[in-house]
């Protein structure tokens, strides 16, 4: 019984939150890794692209809520999501046309492109703050819990409860669907294959008649889609605050690099590695340990390896270790 309680406590406080967070990071990292693979630079504006897409989705959500359009158990934001994606796609395409295209034609170095993306980051960050402000925005509605702790306890008779928030279930389901669609697109469609070819060998792709402008456009659209979905899921699960989204850049980059920049599969693995490391190293294991260990060995301290505020340090430490010992990441990304 104690073992079951320990397991449930682990699931409740570590596994489920880690899974949801990992899915959000994975989606973010996929966007970063695709842009790196095709456009060959680390996009510092990705966190703010996420914030922008989420912001538009929030506005549309509020509008739907005001006219009484909801999705029942599911959050209304899912209905608004396509509009957020559309707006973000239009915006990044415009950004590409006005800003990045020039540097691509010039064959600018990746470092210059990173600095340019810093400028874009400023602009997007400014736009988001201008439109929606800097405060927390809560836009989650629909079912609060898929399983609540109370129900779980009543049903199983265990002392520990397992709660799965609606937003967590929606996150994992949406992320799984998105990733499946993305991989189908990359592996099976002509356009998806041409993107991979372009990422693999740009000159040969050009020689084969692949239109680079089209590849770049499709990449931006996919990146915008992934960013918006990741941002909305994160916002539903936690809350929306522009600055938090900027800070997400760090774990997202860590995930993409750990997996191997340029490797979509790596981005997903990296997302979960970073998320679970963060959660596990900052979780106070006292509860789980009390169940598992005999009473005489029950711990006095919280058994927390690091304070929750050091979660950045976790993603960062993993990032540095991977960069030092495995520079191309777990899944052999590209290092141009």
């Amino acid at each position: 019984m104690d073992f079951l309680n320990a397991l449930v406590a682990f699931l409740n406080f570590v596994f489920v939150p880690g899974l949801a967070y990992g899915a959000q990071l994975a989606l973010g990292a996929l966007g970063v890794t695709l842009i790196y693979g095709i456009l060959r630079f680390s996009n510092f504006a990705h966190g703010d692209t996420m914030a922008f897409g989420t912001m538009v989705t929030i506005f549309v959500t509020w509008f739907f809520q005001s006219i009484g359009l909801t999705a029942g158990f599911l959050p209304t934001a899912l209905l608004a999501l396509p509009f957020g994606i559309l707006a973000t796609a239009v915006m990044v395409l415009a950004t590409d046309k006005v800003i990045y295209q020039f540097y691509r034609r010039q064959k600018a170095t990746p470092t210059i492109l990173v600095i340019v993306s810093m400028g874009v980051m400023f602009v997007m960050n400014g736009l988001v703050r201008l439109f929606i402000g800097v405060d927390d925005q809560n836009f989650a509605d629909g079912g609060r819990f898929l399983i609540s702790a109370g129900e779980f306890k009543a049903a199983t008779g265990l002392a520990e409860g397992l709660s799965i928030k609606g937003s967590q279930a929606v996150t994992v389901a949406t992320a799984a669907l998105t990733v499946a669609l993305l991989f189908w697109f990359l592996q099976k469609t002509r356009t998806g294959k041409s993107m991979r070819a372009f990422a693999d060998n740009e000159d040969l792709a050009l020689l084969s008649g692949i239109n680079p402008d089209r590849v770049v456009q499709v990449t931006w659209i996919i990146a915008a889609t992934l960013a918006t979905i990741a941002g909305v899921l994160y916002g539903l699960d936690k809350s929306f605050r522009p600055f938090t989204y900027f800070q997400l850049l760090l774990p997202i980059f860590a995930a993409a690099i750990v997996g191997g920049l340029g490797s979509p599969l790596g981005a997903i693995a990296g997302g979960f590695i970073i998320a679970f490391s963060e959660v596990m190293l900052t979780y106070a294991w006292k509860k789980v340990a009390t169940y598992v260990l005999p009473d005489s060995m029950a711990p006095d301290s919280l058994l927390q390896l690091m304070g929750t505020d050091y979660k950045f340090a976790v993603s960062f430490a993993i990032l540095i270790l991977v960069l030092l010992f495995l520079p191309t990441g777990l899944f052999k990304g590209k290092s141009y």
């Binding site: 800003i99 340019v116 810093m118 400028g119 874009v120 980051m121 400023f122 602009v123 997007m124 960050n125 400014g126 736009l127 703050r129 201008l130 402000g133 800097v134």
Partner: peptide, 12 residues
């Protein structure tokens, strides 16, 4: 918050 926007535009 215009300042972020302004600076971004100037940088670009």
């Amino acid at each position: 918050h215009m300042r972020l926007l302004t600076l971004g535009v100037i940088l670009l």
